[in-house]
Amino acid sequence: MSKFIYPFLAGILLLATLSGCNSTPKETSNHWVKLATKTANFQTDTDTVTINSLFNSAHYNHLKLTCIQGTVQIDAIKINYADGHVQQLSTLGLLTKNSSTRAMTLDRAQNKIKSIELTYNSIGNATLNLAGVTKKAKLEIWAKKTADTNN
C-alpha cells in the first residue's frame, strides 16, 4: 500500500509546485507584467481576476488590456485595492485583434491590487463561432510595476 502512497503524494506536491510557478506573473523587459488572460463569451459577462498576493508582492501604477483574438466591447473596469479603495476606470469601447488600450493610470500605486473586475461582451455569436467566421474574444490584462518594485 505504501508503494502507491509515496508516488501519489510526490505527484500532488509536484503539481502544486508547478501550479504556483504558473500563477507567478511574467515580467517583460519594460516592466509590464501579464496578470491574466480571459475569454469573453458572446454575451455581457463580468469576470473577476484575483491577484494572488502569495506569489506577487508588486505594486502597479498602470493597467492596459490587449485583445489577442476576436472583437470585444469593454463596458467597465473596476480595480479593488487591498486597502478597500475601489477605482472605476473609464469605459474603453471596442477592441479588435492585436489592439490595446492606452496605459491607464492607477490612483493607488502605493497599495496592492486585490482584484480586477472586467465587464465586457465579445462581438459575434455562437453560430458564427462554430462556422469559423468569428471567434470569442481573448483579452490579456497587463500591469506596469512601480519604480520601487522594479528590481
Rank of each mutant, 00 (worst) to 15 (best):
F55W: 12
H62P: 07
S53F: 05
C67R: 04
G84N: 05
E27C: 15
V86I: 00
Y81D: 04
G93Y: 11
T96E: 10
L94S: 01
V72L: 03
V86Q: 02
K97G: 01
I77Q: 00
E27W: 11
I51N: 09
Y81M: 06
V86E: 02
F55G: 14
I51L: 13
W32C: 08
Q69V: 01
C67W: 04
A58V: 12
D83K: 10
D75F: 03
L89H: 06
T46I: 05
I79S: 10
T24K: 11
D47E: 06
G70R: 00
T28H: 15
G84I: 02
Q69A: 00
I51H: 09
V86T: 00
T66P: 05
S57L: 06
N30L: 10
H62Y: 15
T28G: 15
H31M: 11
H59S: 14
T71E: 08
D83N: 12
T24L: 11
A82R: 00
I68S: 08
S29P: 11
K78N: 09
S90K: 12
T91H: 03
T48I: 11
H62C: 09
N41H: 11
K26C: 09
F42I: 05
A36V: 08
Y81R: 04
G84E: 01
T28A: 15
T28W: 14
K26G: 10
T24H: 10
H85G: 12
F42Q: 05
Q73P: 08
F55V: 15
V33G: 02
D47T: 02
F42L: 05
T50Q: 04
A58S: 15
T50E: 02
K34L: 14
F55C: 12
K38L: 01
